[in-house]
């Protein structure tokens, strides 16, 4: 299934739209399996591109979340605190955070949907 083309992607399997809404990819949720816990910062927290800011836990493992770009959190999807399995059901529809970007040009260095899908295929081939 090709990734949606309305957003950008990271090699750490996050997606982000031009307005700063972000989540994790379908491939990520598939790799993780049953997601049981999503730990996110609060509104107002500052994220730095490439740095970890939260975690997603499946039954078996803890995975760090990496900020695709720098910015300030303006909104957190609180429903994921009680219904983290939403990410399994619809990863590209289950946003985690909304960010006010501090340096929008950082978006330019992220992957397109086609490049991300290619990256995932190559990664699986290793």
């Amino acid at each position: 299934m090709p990734s949606p083309t309305d957003r950008k992607y990271t090699k750490e399997h996050e997606w982000i739209t031009a307005d700063g809404t972000m989540g994790i990819t379908h491939h990520a949720q598939e790799s993780l399996g049953d997601i049981v816990f999503v730990d996110l910062p609060k509104v107002g927290a500052e994220l730095t591109a490439g740095k970890t800011f939260g975690t997603v836990e499946s039954v078996k493992a803890v995975s760090d979340l990496y900020a695709p770009v720098s910015g300030t959190i303006t909104e957190v999807n609180e429903t994921l605190a009680t219904a983290p399995e939403q990410v399994n059901k619809d990863a590209h529809g289950s946003w985690m955070l909304k960010l006010k970007l501090s340096n929008p040009s950082e978006m330019d260095s992220l992957l397109s949907a086609a490049d991300y899908d290619k990256f995932v295929t190559e990664e699986a081939g290793h």
Binding site: E12, H13, E14, I24, A28, S31, L32, V56, S63, D64, L65, Y66, E123, H126
Partner: peptide, 8 residues
């Protein structure tokens, strides 16, 4: 996030 690499 980082997903685990292929197993040896």
């Amino acid at each position: 996030m980082l997903l685990s690499a292929a197993a040896p």
